[in-house]
Amino acid sequence: MFKAKLKAEVLKTILDAVATLVDEAKIHVTPEGLSLKAVDPAHVAMVDLSLGKKAFAEYKATDLDMGVDLDKLKDILKLAGSQDLIDIEYKEDAHKLVFKLGHITRRMSLVDTANMGDPKVPNLSLPNQVVVLASELQQGIKASEAVSDHIALVADGKAFELVAEGDTDQAHLRLEGSELIKIQAPQKSRSLFSLDYFSTMSKVVKATDAVTLNLGTDFPVKIEFDIADGNGHIIYLLAPRIESE
């Protein structure tokens, strides 16, 4: 059983967070909330998302898995304004999710979850941690996009840097000390990432929220932040590009 009511913008955040990586996702429903894990076909990025029942205006559920076609969900969300409330109910006999928005009822067929495995989350030990305001990060990404298709994330002692080196131009974001919410970087770390992936991930978080980056050298970055006013949480893992010359 799954019956819930929530603001369209919460659902939209989830969709934005996941749809950039996969077309279909298996949502795991429990009495306490939703969660999902998905890895993109190239195995470069993974999302691990949880949304507690407090993120919902109403929530009642038992344990179940739902396979959702994210393109369809996107179409449904286009029908709603961000502050609109959406009613969602799982109809087990028909294997459908029923959405009610205003005077519209939209029934969505679910995808068979039998062939949707659960991605294995790699167990990473990342030495450095940086907590930064999302708007700072987003500004750095904006500067980099004009220059290159990849960025280096560097943490060293009291400073965090985002560096984009293009064929001819460079962009550089440097934050240190009180410009960061927190930094713990006992050893210097540097990893290179696809800007495309990193940028879409960073767009999901609200500009005024904090983003935690866990970093190593030539190692994946773990990006963590809260969604839905702290009632939900997203963890992204992004594999690095290994520099070879």
Binding site: V39, A42, H43, V44, A45, M46, V121, P122, N123, L124, H150, L192, S194, F219, P220, L237, A239, P240, R241, I242, E243, S244
Partner: peptide
């Protein structure tokens, strides 16, 4: 571009 897969780690 040396893009690594997550499978290489952890």
């Amino acid at each position: 571009g040396g893009q690594a897969s997550l499978a290489r780690f952890g």
